[in-house]
Nucleic acid binder design. Structure first.
Length: 553
RNA sequence: GGGCGAUUAGCUCAGUUGGAUAGAGCGUUGGCCUCCGGAGCCAAAGGUCGCGGGUUCGAAUCCCGCAUCGCCCUCCA
Protein backbone atom coordinates (compact mmCIF):
# COMPACT_ATOMS: atom_id res chain seq x y z
CA UNK A 1 0.00 0.00 0.00
CA UNK A 2 2.82 2.35 0.87
CA UNK A 3 4.26 1.92 -2.60
CA UNK A 4 0.95 2.78 -4.21
CA UNK A 5 0.71 6.03 -2.28
CA UNK A 6 4.30 6.88 -3.14
CA UNK A 7 3.49 6.35 -6.79
CA UNK A 8 0.43 8.62 -6.69
CA UNK A 9 2.37 11.29 -4.89
CA UNK A 10 5.29 11.12 -7.28
CA UNK A 11 2.95 11.46 -10.23
CA UNK A 12 1.21 14.46 -8.69
CA UNK A 13 4.48 16.29 -8.12
CA UNK A 14 5.63 15.49 -11.64
CA UNK A 15 2.37 16.82 -13.02
CA UNK A 16 2.82 20.02 -11.06
CA UNK A 17 6.29 20.40 -12.51
CA UNK A 18 5.00 19.90 -16.04
CA UNK A 19 2.24 22.48 -15.95
CA UNK A 20 4.50 24.92 -14.21
CA UNK A 21 2.57 25.35 -11.00
CA UNK A 22 5.73 24.23 -9.24
CA UNK A 23 9.22 25.16 -10.43
CA UNK A 24 11.04 22.03 -11.48
CA UNK A 25 13.57 21.28 -8.82
CA UNK A 26 15.95 18.43 -8.25
CA UNK A 27 14.03 15.23 -7.90
CA UNK A 28 13.12 15.35 -4.24
CA UNK A 29 13.35 12.26 -2.12
CA UNK A 30 9.76 11.59 -1.27
CA UNK A 31 9.19 10.06 2.12
CA UNK A 32 6.03 8.69 3.54
CA UNK A 33 5.50 7.80 7.13
CA UNK A 34 2.94 6.12 9.30
CA UNK A 35 1.40 8.78 11.54
CA UNK A 36 0.98 7.97 15.18
CA UNK A 37 -2.28 9.78 15.42
CA UNK A 38 -5.31 8.14 13.87
CA UNK A 39 -6.88 11.34 12.59
CA UNK A 40 -3.69 12.07 10.70
CA UNK A 41 -4.65 9.40 8.24
CA UNK A 42 -3.05 6.14 7.19
CA UNK A 43 0.01 7.75 5.66
CA UNK A 44 1.49 11.21 5.74
CA UNK A 45 4.19 13.10 3.92
CA UNK A 46 6.23 16.17 4.74
CA UNK A 47 7.23 16.70 1.11
CA UNK A 48 5.54 20.10 0.86
CA UNK A 49 7.63 21.45 3.73
CA UNK A 50 10.79 20.20 2.10
CA UNK A 51 9.89 21.64 -1.29
CA UNK A 52 8.81 24.93 0.26
CA UNK A 53 12.38 26.16 0.57
CA UNK A 54 13.34 25.79 -3.08
CA UNK A 55 9.89 26.87 -4.24
CA UNK A 56 9.97 29.98 -2.10
CA UNK A 57 6.34 29.46 -1.28
CA UNK A 58 4.67 28.63 1.96
CA UNK A 59 4.53 24.92 2.76
CA UNK A 60 0.77 24.95 2.92
CA UNK A 61 0.57 26.52 -0.53
CA UNK A 62 2.92 23.90 -1.98
CA UNK A 63 0.88 21.19 -0.32
CA UNK A 64 -2.31 22.56 -1.84
CA UNK A 65 -0.71 22.63 -5.28
CA UNK A 66 0.37 19.03 -4.97
CA UNK A 67 -3.03 17.99 -3.71
CA UNK A 68 -4.68 19.63 -6.72
CA UNK A 69 -2.66 17.38 -9.00
CA UNK A 70 -3.37 14.23 -7.05
CA UNK A 71 -5.53 11.58 -8.66
CA UNK A 72 -7.11 9.43 -6.03
CA UNK A 73 -7.42 6.54 -8.41
CA UNK A 74 -10.03 4.85 -6.34
CA UNK A 75 -7.50 4.27 -3.60
CA UNK A 76 -7.91 7.29 -1.43
CA UNK A 77 -10.92 8.24 0.59
CA UNK A 78 -9.67 11.74 1.22
CA UNK A 79 -6.52 13.79 1.44
CA UNK A 80 -6.05 16.40 4.13
CA UNK A 81 -3.79 19.36 4.49
CA UNK A 82 -2.77 19.57 8.11
CA UNK A 83 -0.53 21.38 10.53
CA UNK A 84 2.40 23.29 9.07
CA UNK A 85 2.06 21.53 5.70
CA UNK A 86 1.60 17.81 6.15
CA UNK A 87 -0.41 15.97 3.56
CA UNK A 88 -2.41 13.21 5.19
CA UNK A 89 -3.70 10.31 3.14
CA UNK A 90 -6.81 8.41 4.10
CA UNK A 91 -7.06 5.10 2.30
CA UNK A 92 -10.53 3.84 1.46
CA UNK A 93 -11.59 1.65 4.34
CA UNK A 94 -12.81 -1.24 2.24
CA UNK A 95 -9.61 -1.28 0.22
CA UNK A 96 -7.45 -2.42 3.12
CA UNK A 97 -8.88 -5.90 3.39
CA UNK A 98 -8.24 -6.56 -0.28
CA UNK A 99 -4.54 -6.50 0.55
CA UNK A 100 -5.03 -9.89 2.16
CA UNK A 101 -5.22 -11.37 -1.32
CA UNK A 102 -1.46 -10.90 -1.45
CA UNK A 103 -1.09 -13.46 1.33
CA UNK A 104 -3.22 -15.91 -0.60
CA UNK A 105 -1.21 -15.41 -3.79
CA UNK A 106 2.21 -15.68 -2.22
CA UNK A 107 1.50 -18.10 0.59
CA UNK A 108 4.61 -18.91 2.57
CA UNK A 109 6.62 -16.61 0.29
CA UNK A 110 4.70 -13.61 1.61
CA UNK A 111 7.25 -11.07 2.79
CA UNK A 112 9.97 -12.19 0.42
CA UNK A 113 11.18 -9.70 -2.16
CA UNK A 114 13.81 -9.20 -4.81
CA UNK A 115 15.22 -6.08 -3.20
CA UNK A 116 18.76 -7.43 -3.56
CA UNK A 117 18.22 -8.50 -7.18
CA UNK A 118 20.52 -11.46 -6.78
CA UNK A 119 23.44 -9.50 -5.39
CA UNK A 120 26.10 -11.77 -3.96
CA UNK A 121 26.66 -11.15 -0.28
CA UNK A 122 28.95 -12.83 2.17
CA UNK A 123 28.20 -12.70 5.86
CA UNK A 124 31.14 -13.61 8.07
CA UNK A 125 30.42 -14.21 11.72
CA UNK A 126 31.37 -16.07 14.91
CA UNK A 127 34.88 -16.80 13.56
CA UNK A 128 36.02 -17.77 17.04
CA UNK A 129 39.39 -19.47 17.14
CA UNK A 130 39.18 -23.13 18.16
CA UNK A 131 40.91 -22.54 21.47
CA UNK A 132 37.89 -23.28 23.60
CA UNK A 133 34.14 -23.73 23.51
CA UNK A 134 31.86 -20.92 22.35
CA UNK A 135 30.63 -18.66 25.10
CA UNK A 136 27.47 -16.66 25.32
CA UNK A 137 28.94 -13.64 23.54
CA UNK A 138 29.68 -15.80 20.50
CA UNK A 139 26.07 -16.94 20.73
CA UNK A 140 24.78 -13.45 20.24
CA UNK A 141 27.07 -12.92 17.28
CA UNK A 142 25.92 -16.24 15.84
CA UNK A 143 22.27 -15.29 16.21
CA UNK A 144 22.76 -11.86 14.65
CA UNK A 145 24.80 -13.20 11.74
CA UNK A 146 22.51 -16.11 11.05
CA UNK A 147 19.32 -14.07 11.18
CA UNK A 148 20.82 -11.31 9.08
CA UNK A 149 21.75 -13.95 6.52
CA UNK A 150 18.21 -15.28 6.48
CA UNK A 151 16.82 -11.77 6.07
CA UNK A 152 19.15 -11.02 3.19
CA UNK A 153 18.32 -14.31 1.57
CA UNK A 154 14.61 -13.54 1.88
CA UNK A 155 15.12 -10.17 0.23
CA UNK A 156 16.73 -11.51 -2.89
CA UNK A 157 20.40 -11.65 -2.03
CA UNK A 158 22.61 -14.65 -2.78
CA UNK A 159 24.08 -15.19 0.67
CA UNK A 160 27.09 -17.20 1.77
CA UNK A 161 27.65 -17.67 5.51
CA UNK A 162 31.29 -17.97 6.39
CA UNK A 163 33.31 -18.77 9.48
CA UNK A 164 36.93 -17.62 9.50
CA UNK A 165 39.32 -19.80 11.44
CA UNK A 166 42.34 -17.83 12.46
CA UNK A 167 44.48 -20.93 12.86
CA UNK A 168 47.94 -19.57 12.11
CA UNK A 169 48.58 -17.25 15.01
CA UNK A 170 49.91 -17.26 18.54
CA UNK A 171 46.63 -18.27 20.05
CA UNK A 172 46.75 -21.65 18.37
CA UNK A 173 50.34 -22.17 19.49
CA UNK A 174 49.26 -21.33 23.02
CA UNK A 175 46.49 -23.87 22.79
CA UNK A 176 48.94 -26.63 21.88
CA UNK A 177 51.27 -25.51 24.63
CA UNK A 178 48.45 -25.54 27.18
CA UNK A 179 47.52 -29.10 26.39
CA UNK A 180 51.16 -30.15 26.29
CA UNK A 181 51.86 -28.84 29.77
CA UNK A 182 48.76 -30.47 31.17
CA UNK A 183 49.93 -33.67 29.54
CA UNK A 184 53.27 -33.41 31.32
CA UNK A 185 51.40 -32.70 34.50
CA UNK A 186 49.37 -35.87 34.13
CA UNK A 187 52.66 -37.72 33.80
CA UNK A 188 53.61 -36.49 37.22
CA UNK A 189 55.77 -33.52 36.31
CA UNK A 190 55.12 -30.37 38.22
CA UNK A 191 54.65 -27.57 35.76
CA UNK A 192 53.53 -23.98 35.86
CA UNK A 193 51.51 -22.83 32.89
CA UNK A 194 53.21 -20.05 30.93
CA UNK A 195 51.42 -16.77 30.23
CA UNK A 196 48.74 -16.84 27.61
CA UNK A 197 47.83 -20.43 28.27
CA UNK A 198 44.25 -21.64 28.52
CA UNK A 199 43.16 -22.96 31.86
CA UNK A 200 39.77 -24.48 31.39
CA UNK A 201 39.02 -28.04 32.43
CA UNK A 202 38.52 -28.99 28.80
CA UNK A 203 42.29 -28.57 28.32
CA UNK A 204 42.95 -31.23 30.92
CA UNK A 205 40.49 -33.55 29.24
CA UNK A 206 42.25 -33.09 25.93
CA UNK A 207 45.57 -33.82 27.62
CA UNK A 208 44.14 -36.98 29.10
CA UNK A 209 43.03 -38.19 25.66
CA UNK A 210 46.50 -37.53 24.32
CA UNK A 211 47.89 -39.54 27.19
CA UNK A 212 45.54 -42.43 26.42
CA UNK A 213 46.60 -42.40 22.81
CA UNK A 214 50.31 -41.91 23.03
CA UNK A 215 51.20 -42.92 26.56
CA UNK A 216 54.33 -41.27 27.79
CA UNK A 217 56.00 -41.36 24.37
CA UNK A 218 55.60 -37.65 23.67
CA UNK A 219 57.48 -36.73 26.77
CA UNK A 220 60.85 -37.84 25.49
CA UNK A 221 60.97 -35.67 22.36
CA UNK A 222 61.56 -31.92 22.35
CA UNK A 223 58.59 -29.65 22.95
CA UNK A 224 59.14 -27.91 19.60
CA UNK A 225 58.64 -31.19 17.85
CA UNK A 226 55.53 -32.41 19.64
CA UNK A 227 53.60 -29.26 20.45
CA UNK A 228 52.23 -29.00 16.88
CA UNK A 229 50.78 -32.45 17.41
CA UNK A 230 48.96 -31.19 20.46
CA UNK A 231 47.82 -28.09 18.62
CA UNK A 232 46.37 -29.99 15.68
CA UNK A 233 44.65 -32.52 17.85
CA UNK A 234 43.16 -29.99 20.26
CA UNK A 235 42.04 -27.60 17.52
CA UNK A 236 40.36 -30.41 15.64
CA UNK A 237 38.43 -31.64 18.63
CA UNK A 238 37.44 -28.17 19.78
CA UNK A 239 36.34 -27.17 16.28
CA UNK A 240 34.13 -30.23 16.10
CA UNK A 241 32.59 -29.18 19.39
CA UNK A 242 32.00 -25.67 18.11
CA UNK A 243 30.28 -26.98 14.99
CA UNK A 244 28.11 -29.22 17.10
CA UNK A 245 27.13 -26.32 19.38
CA UNK A 246 26.26 -24.20 16.37
CA UNK A 247 24.22 -26.99 14.86
CA UNK A 248 22.19 -27.30 18.03
CA UNK A 249 21.76 -23.56 18.00
CA UNK A 250 20.39 -23.76 14.47
CA UNK A 251 23.32 -22.17 12.70
CA UNK A 252 24.85 -23.82 9.65
CA UNK A 253 27.75 -22.27 7.79
CA UNK A 254 28.28 -22.62 4.07
CA UNK A 255 32.00 -22.25 4.35
CA UNK A 256 34.76 -22.56 6.94
CA UNK A 257 37.76 -20.60 5.80
CA UNK A 258 41.16 -21.21 7.37
CA UNK A 259 43.79 -18.56 7.63
CA UNK A 260 46.39 -21.24 6.90
CA UNK A 261 44.81 -21.75 3.46
CA UNK A 262 45.53 -18.11 2.78
CA UNK A 263 49.20 -18.63 3.51
CA UNK A 264 49.39 -21.73 1.33
CA UNK A 265 48.21 -19.65 -1.60
CA UNK A 266 50.69 -16.92 -0.71
CA UNK A 267 47.73 -14.65 -0.12
CA UNK A 268 49.57 -12.21 2.10
CA UNK A 269 52.46 -12.02 -0.32
CA UNK A 270 50.10 -11.32 -3.21
CA UNK A 271 48.33 -8.70 -1.19
CA UNK A 272 51.56 -6.89 -0.43
CA UNK A 273 52.50 -6.95 -4.10
CA UNK A 274 49.15 -5.38 -4.94
CA UNK A 275 49.56 -2.69 -2.31
CA UNK A 276 53.14 -2.05 -3.35
CA UNK A 277 52.16 -1.63 -6.98
CA UNK A 278 49.64 0.97 -5.91
CA UNK A 279 52.14 2.69 -3.67
CA UNK A 280 50.14 2.14 -0.50
CA UNK A 281 53.04 0.68 1.49
CA UNK A 282 56.38 2.04 2.61
CA UNK A 283 59.30 0.95 4.79
CA UNK A 284 60.18 2.63 8.02
CA UNK A 285 62.12 1.59 11.11
CA UNK A 286 62.66 -1.82 9.63
CA UNK A 287 58.96 -2.55 9.21
CA UNK A 288 56.57 -2.33 6.30
CA UNK A 289 53.67 0.08 6.75
CA UNK A 290 50.32 0.36 5.09
CA UNK A 291 49.26 3.92 4.34
CA UNK A 292 45.79 3.63 5.86
CA UNK A 293 45.73 7.36 6.63
CA UNK A 294 45.15 7.86 2.90
CA UNK A 295 41.63 6.59 3.58
CA UNK A 296 40.90 8.35 6.83
CA UNK A 297 42.51 6.09 9.43
CA UNK A 298 44.18 8.04 12.21
CA UNK A 299 47.59 6.45 11.77
CA UNK A 300 49.35 4.14 9.35
CA UNK A 301 49.55 0.47 10.31
CA UNK A 302 52.33 -2.07 10.25
CA UNK A 303 51.79 -5.00 7.92
CA UNK A 304 55.23 -6.64 8.15
CA UNK A 305 56.98 -6.52 11.48
CA UNK A 306 60.67 -5.91 11.99
CA UNK A 307 60.99 -9.65 12.47
CA UNK A 308 59.68 -10.25 8.96
CA UNK A 309 56.41 -11.70 10.25
CA UNK A 310 53.19 -10.35 8.76
CA UNK A 311 50.76 -8.85 11.28
CA UNK A 312 47.28 -10.13 11.87
CA UNK A 313 46.02 -7.07 10.05
CA UNK A 314 47.98 -7.99 6.90
CA UNK A 315 46.38 -11.40 6.95
CA UNK A 316 42.99 -9.84 7.39
CA UNK A 317 43.32 -7.56 4.38
CA UNK A 318 44.50 -10.53 2.35
CA UNK A 319 41.48 -12.44 3.57
CA UNK A 320 39.15 -9.67 2.48
CA UNK A 321 40.91 -9.43 -0.86
CA UNK A 322 40.25 -13.12 -1.23
CA UNK A 323 36.58 -12.58 -0.41
CA UNK A 324 36.15 -10.06 -3.21
CA UNK A 325 38.09 -12.27 -5.61
CA UNK A 326 35.53 -14.95 -4.94
CA UNK A 327 32.99 -12.61 -6.50
CA UNK A 328 31.06 -11.15 -3.60
CA UNK A 329 29.49 -7.78 -4.34
CA UNK A 330 29.17 -7.00 -0.70
CA UNK A 331 30.86 -8.31 2.42
CA UNK A 332 29.36 -8.07 5.88
CA UNK A 333 31.53 -8.72 8.94
CA UNK A 334 30.02 -9.25 12.35
CA UNK A 335 32.44 -8.23 15.06
CA UNK A 336 32.52 -7.89 18.80
CA UNK A 337 32.06 -4.26 19.71
CA UNK A 338 35.47 -4.14 21.34
CA UNK A 339 36.94 -4.21 17.82
CA UNK A 340 35.24 -0.99 16.78
CA UNK A 341 38.56 0.85 16.64
CA UNK A 342 39.58 -1.57 13.92
CA UNK A 343 36.96 -0.45 11.42
CA UNK A 344 38.79 2.52 9.83
CA UNK A 345 41.87 0.47 8.99
CA UNK A 346 39.88 -2.41 7.55
CA UNK A 347 37.86 0.01 5.50
CA UNK A 348 41.13 1.59 4.32
CA UNK A 349 42.36 -1.88 3.45
CA UNK A 350 39.55 -2.66 1.04
CA UNK A 351 39.59 0.81 -0.44
CA UNK A 352 43.28 0.41 -1.21
CA UNK A 353 42.24 -2.67 -3.14
CA UNK A 354 39.98 -0.49 -5.22
CA UNK A 355 36.70 -1.37 -3.56
CA UNK A 356 34.12 1.14 -2.51
CA UNK A 357 33.72 1.90 1.17
CA UNK A 358 30.17 0.57 0.92
CA UNK A 359 31.31 -2.87 -0.17
CA UNK A 360 32.22 -3.70 3.41
CA UNK A 361 29.63 -3.39 6.14
CA UNK A 362 30.56 -4.07 9.72
CA UNK A 363 27.95 -4.93 12.29
CA UNK A 364 29.09 -4.57 15.88
CA UNK A 365 27.69 -6.86 18.53
CA UNK A 366 27.89 -5.69 22.11
CA UNK A 367 28.62 -7.75 25.18
CA UNK A 368 26.06 -9.94 26.83
CA UNK A 369 25.53 -9.45 30.51
CA UNK A 370 24.66 -12.84 31.89
CA UNK A 371 22.39 -12.77 34.92
CA UNK A 372 20.60 -15.23 37.12
CA UNK A 373 17.63 -13.77 38.94
CA UNK A 374 19.06 -10.34 38.35
CA UNK A 375 22.45 -11.21 39.83
CA UNK A 376 25.45 -11.11 37.45
CA UNK A 377 27.01 -14.48 36.74
CA UNK A 378 30.73 -14.16 37.20
CA UNK A 379 32.68 -14.82 34.05
CA UNK A 380 36.39 -14.85 33.61
CA UNK A 381 38.11 -16.44 30.64
CA UNK A 382 41.44 -16.28 32.39
CA UNK A 383 40.36 -18.46 35.22
CA UNK A 384 38.63 -20.75 32.76
CA UNK A 385 35.29 -20.06 34.39
CA UNK A 386 32.80 -19.01 31.82
CA UNK A 387 29.34 -19.96 30.85
CA UNK A 388 29.40 -21.66 27.49
CA UNK A 389 26.82 -21.20 24.80
CA UNK A 390 26.07 -24.88 25.10
CA UNK A 391 25.23 -24.59 28.77
CA UNK A 392 22.86 -21.74 28.04
CA UNK A 393 21.11 -23.64 25.26
CA UNK A 394 20.84 -26.74 27.44
CA UNK A 395 19.27 -24.68 30.17
CA UNK A 396 16.87 -22.36 28.34
CA UNK A 397 16.56 -23.90 24.88
CA UNK A 398 17.71 -22.63 21.50
CA UNK A 399 14.47 -20.74 20.76
CA UNK A 400 14.54 -18.65 23.92
CA UNK A 401 18.25 -18.02 23.55
CA UNK A 402 17.98 -16.86 19.95
CA UNK A 403 14.95 -14.70 20.61
CA UNK A 404 16.54 -13.03 23.61
CA UNK A 405 19.73 -12.30 21.69
CA UNK A 406 17.68 -10.43 19.10
CA UNK A 407 15.53 -8.33 21.38
CA UNK A 408 17.98 -5.42 21.43
CA UNK A 409 19.87 -3.52 18.81
CA UNK A 410 23.03 -5.54 18.34
CA UNK A 411 24.96 -2.37 19.04
CA UNK A 412 23.78 -2.09 22.63
CA UNK A 413 24.50 -4.12 25.73
CA UNK A 414 22.15 -6.97 26.45
CA UNK A 415 21.05 -8.31 29.78
CA UNK A 416 20.35 -12.00 29.52
CA UNK A 417 18.70 -13.47 32.57
CA UNK A 418 18.79 -17.26 32.59
CA UNK A 419 15.87 -17.60 34.95
CA UNK A 420 13.63 -15.30 32.92
CA UNK A 421 14.64 -16.90 29.64
CA UNK A 422 13.47 -20.29 30.79
CA UNK A 423 10.39 -19.08 32.62
CA UNK A 424 7.25 -19.94 30.73
CA UNK A 425 5.39 -16.82 31.69
CA UNK A 426 4.57 -13.33 30.59
CA UNK A 427 8.01 -12.19 31.58
CA UNK A 428 9.35 -14.15 28.66
CA UNK A 429 8.54 -12.61 25.28
CA UNK A 430 9.33 -15.62 23.13
CA UNK A 431 6.40 -17.55 24.56
CA UNK A 432 4.07 -14.66 23.99
CA UNK A 433 4.75 -14.80 20.27
CA UNK A 434 4.86 -18.57 20.00
CA UNK A 435 1.60 -18.78 21.90
CA UNK A 436 0.00 -16.49 19.35
CA UNK A 437 0.93 -18.97 16.65
CA UNK A 438 -0.25 -21.97 18.63
CA UNK A 439 -3.48 -20.13 19.32
CA UNK A 440 -4.07 -19.58 15.61
CA UNK A 441 -3.43 -23.22 14.82
CA UNK A 442 -5.91 -24.11 17.52
CA UNK A 443 -8.55 -21.81 16.08
CA UNK A 444 -8.08 -23.36 12.64
CA UNK A 445 -8.39 -26.79 14.20
CA UNK A 446 -11.59 -25.86 16.01
CA UNK A 447 -12.94 -24.53 12.73
CA UNK A 448 -11.96 -27.72 10.94
CA UNK A 449 -13.84 -29.76 13.56
CA UNK A 450 -16.93 -27.77 12.66
CA UNK A 451 -16.44 -28.29 8.97
CA UNK A 452 -14.62 -25.13 7.99
CA UNK A 453 -11.43 -25.51 6.01
CA UNK A 454 -9.08 -22.59 5.54
CA UNK A 455 -10.74 -20.65 2.74
CA UNK A 456 -9.02 -19.10 -0.24
CA UNK A 457 -9.21 -15.34 -0.50
CA UNK A 458 -11.61 -15.68 -3.42
CA UNK A 459 -14.05 -17.61 -1.26
CA UNK A 460 -14.52 -14.99 1.41
CA UNK A 461 -16.38 -11.75 1.66
CA UNK A 462 -13.55 -9.58 2.90
CA UNK A 463 -15.94 -6.68 3.31
CA UNK A 464 -17.24 -8.34 6.47
CA UNK A 465 -13.98 -7.58 8.27
CA UNK A 466 -15.06 -4.22 9.59
CA UNK A 467 -13.96 -4.25 13.21
CA UNK A 468 -11.23 -1.76 14.19
CA UNK A 469 -9.06 -4.64 15.39
CA UNK A 470 -9.40 -6.28 11.99
CA UNK A 471 -8.41 -3.06 10.32
CA UNK A 472 -5.30 -2.82 12.51
CA UNK A 473 -4.39 -6.43 11.83
CA UNK A 474 -4.66 -6.00 8.08
CA UNK A 475 -2.46 -2.92 8.21
CA UNK A 476 0.08 -4.79 10.27
CA UNK A 477 0.12 -7.69 7.84
CA UNK A 478 0.49 -5.29 4.93
CA UNK A 479 3.47 -3.67 6.61
CA UNK A 480 5.39 -6.93 6.96
CA UNK A 481 7.20 -6.96 3.59
CA UNK A 482 8.34 -3.36 4.13
CA UNK A 483 9.60 -4.32 7.55
CA UNK A 484 11.78 -7.10 6.18
CA UNK A 485 13.20 -4.82 3.52
CA UNK A 486 13.97 -2.29 6.22
CA UNK A 487 15.79 -4.95 8.24
CA UNK A 488 17.84 -5.87 5.18
CA UNK A 489 18.77 -2.28 4.36
CA UNK A 490 19.68 -1.31 7.90
CA UNK A 491 21.13 -4.70 8.85
CA UNK A 492 18.99 -4.58 11.98
CA UNK A 493 17.42 -7.94 12.78
CA UNK A 494 16.00 -6.77 16.11
CA UNK A 495 13.19 -4.96 14.32
CA UNK A 496 11.58 -8.34 13.74
CA UNK A 497 11.16 -9.12 17.42
CA UNK A 498 9.56 -5.75 18.01
CA UNK A 499 7.22 -6.27 15.09
CA UNK A 500 6.35 -9.78 16.26
CA UNK A 501 5.53 -8.54 19.71
CA UNK A 502 3.14 -6.01 18.23
CA UNK A 503 1.48 -8.46 15.87
CA UNK A 504 1.05 -11.06 18.61
CA UNK A 505 -0.47 -8.41 20.87
CA UNK A 506 -3.03 -7.47 18.22
CA UNK A 507 -3.92 -11.11 17.70
CA UNK A 508 -4.38 -11.83 21.41
CA UNK A 509 -6.44 -8.72 21.82
CA UNK A 510 -8.59 -9.60 18.82
CA UNK A 511 -9.05 -13.12 20.10
CA UNK A 512 -10.28 -11.93 23.45
CA UNK A 513 -12.74 -9.52 21.96
CA UNK A 514 -14.15 -11.31 18.94
CA UNK A 515 -15.00 -14.89 18.16
CA UNK A 516 -13.53 -16.22 14.96
CA UNK A 517 -15.57 -19.40 14.76
CA UNK A 518 -19.23 -18.52 15.18
CA UNK A 519 -22.67 -19.43 13.87
CA UNK A 520 -22.32 -16.87 11.11
CA UNK A 521 -20.77 -18.90 8.30
CA UNK A 522 -19.71 -16.04 6.04
CA UNK A 523 -18.17 -14.06 8.89
CA UNK A 524 -16.41 -17.15 10.15
CA UNK A 525 -14.84 -17.75 6.76
CA UNK A 526 -13.66 -14.16 6.45
CA UNK A 527 -12.15 -14.18 9.95
CA UNK A 528 -10.57 -17.56 9.38
CA UNK A 529 -8.74 -16.16 6.42
CA UNK A 530 -7.55 -13.17 8.43
CA UNK A 531 -6.32 -15.39 11.24
CA UNK A 532 -4.70 -17.75 8.79
CA UNK A 533 -2.89 -14.77 7.23
CA UNK A 534 -1.54 -13.72 10.61
CA UNK A 535 -0.31 -17.26 11.03
CA UNK A 536 1.55 -17.05 7.72
CA UNK A 537 3.28 -13.87 8.84
CA UNK A 538 4.12 -15.23 12.30
CA UNK A 539 5.60 -18.36 10.77
CA UNK A 540 7.59 -16.36 8.27
CA UNK A 541 8.98 -13.94 10.85
CA UNK A 542 9.78 -16.65 13.39
CA UNK A 543 11.40 -18.58 10.56
CA UNK A 544 13.67 -15.63 9.83
CA UNK A 545 14.65 -15.63 13.49
CA UNK A 546 15.28 -19.34 13.37
CA UNK A 547 12.75 -19.82 16.15
CA UNK A 548 10.12 -22.55 16.07
CA UNK A 549 6.48 -21.72 15.41
CA UNK A 550 4.83 -24.49 17.42
CA UNK A 551 1.33 -25.79 16.69
CA UNK A 552 0.73 -26.41 20.37
CA UNK A 553 2.59 -25.65 23.54
C1' G B 1 45.50 12.60 27.03
C1' G B 2 43.03 10.95 22.11
C1' G B 3 39.02 8.10 19.59
C1' C B 4 34.27 5.53 19.46
C1' G B 5 29.55 4.49 21.70
C1' A B 6 25.94 5.27 25.33
C1' U B 7 22.58 8.50 28.61
C1' U B 8 14.53 8.13 27.03
C1' A B 9 8.94 5.77 32.66
C1' G B 10 10.84 2.40 39.07
C1' C B 11 13.83 -1.63 35.79
C1' U B 12 15.33 -3.39 30.68
C1' C B 13 14.96 -0.96 26.18
C1' A B 14 12.38 0.78 21.11
C1' G B 15 11.77 5.24 18.56
C1' U B 16 10.52 3.84 10.93
C1' U B 17 17.02 8.05 9.85
C1' G B 18 14.34 15.84 11.25
C1' G B 19 7.77 15.54 12.02
C1' A B 20 2.19 16.45 14.67
C1' U B 21 -0.01 14.95 21.86
C1' A B 22 7.50 10.41 23.02
C1' G B 23 6.22 4.21 22.88
C1' A B 24 6.78 -1.34 24.37
C1' G B 25 7.83 -5.22 27.85
C1' C B 26 8.55 -6.17 32.94
C1' G B 27 7.28 -4.33 37.74
C1' U B 28 3.07 -1.67 40.63
C1' U B 29 -2.49 -1.00 41.34
C1' G B 30 -7.51 -2.53 39.96
C1' G B 31 -10.68 -5.54 36.85
C1' C B 32 -11.98 -10.05 32.99
C1' C B 33 -13.01 -17.47 31.96
C1' U B 34 -21.04 -20.61 30.93
C1' C B 35 -17.67 -18.89 25.44
C1' C B 36 -12.16 -20.94 19.50
C1' G B 37 -6.27 -22.72 25.18
C1' G B 38 -6.03 -17.33 31.11
C1' A B 39 1.36 -19.09 28.50
C1' G B 40 -4.18 -14.52 27.27
C1' C B 41 -7.15 -9.72 27.67
C1' C B 42 -8.87 -4.65 29.64
C1' A B 43 -7.85 -0.28 32.57
C1' A B 44 -4.88 3.06 35.66
C1' A B 45 -0.51 5.32 37.55
C1' G B 46 4.39 6.43 35.87
C1' G B 47 8.60 11.47 31.51
C1' U B 48 12.52 18.37 32.31
C1' C B 49 14.26 12.25 26.33
C1' G B 50 21.75 13.49 31.25
C1' C B 51 22.75 19.28 31.42
C1' G B 52 23.49 23.97 28.60
C1' G B 53 23.66 26.46 24.04
C1' G B 54 22.90 26.45 18.55
C1' U B 55 20.77 25.18 13.46
C1' U B 56 14.76 25.78 11.37
C1' C B 57 8.48 26.08 10.13
C1' G B 58 9.66 21.73 13.70
C1' A B 59 14.95 18.40 17.56
C1' A B 60 14.87 12.40 21.66
C1' U B 61 16.98 12.54 16.53
C1' C B 62 21.65 17.17 13.39
C1' C B 63 26.06 20.75 15.32
C1' C B 64 29.11 22.72 19.65
C1' G B 65 30.32 22.56 24.90
C1' C B 66 29.89 20.03 29.75
C1' A B 67 28.86 15.76 33.10
C1' U B 68 28.61 10.48 34.03
C1' C B 69 29.37 5.36 32.33
C1' G B 70 31.47 1.62 28.97
C1' C B 71 34.96 0.07 25.24
C1' C B 72 39.41 0.91 22.31
C1' C B 73 44.10 3.32 21.82
C1' U B 74 50.84 -3.10 20.27
C1' C B 75 55.35 -3.99 15.01
C1' C B 76 48.58 -8.73 20.16
C1' A B 77 45.02 -11.63 17.83
Amino acid sequence: MKKKILELLGRAIEAAFIDGSLCRAEAPIIEIELPREENHGDYATNIAMILAKTQKKSPRLVAETIMNHLHCNGILEKVDLAGPGFINFFVKKDLWVTLLEEVDLKGDAYGRSDLGSGQRVQVEFVSANPTGPLHIGHGRGAAVGDVLSRILEATGHAVVKEYYINDAGNQMANLGKSVYFRYLELLGQSVSLPDGCYRGDYIIELARTMLDRHGAALQSTTPEEVIPLFTDYAAGIIMEGIKEDLRIFGVEFDCYFKESELHKDRGVFNLLETLRSRAFVYEQEGALWFKSTAFGDEKDRVVIRETGEPTYFAGDIAYHKNKYERGFDKVIDIWGADHHGYIPRMSAGIQALGRSRDDLKIVLVQLVNLLRNGVPVAMSTRAGEFVTLREVIDEVGADAARYNFLMRRSNSHLDFDLEIAKKQSDENPVYYVQYAHARIVNILKTAADRGYGVPRYGEINAGLLTEPEEHELVKMIDRYPELIEGCALSLEPHRITFYLNGLAALLHSYYNKHRVVSDDGELTKARLFLVYSIGVVLRSALGLLGVAAPDRM
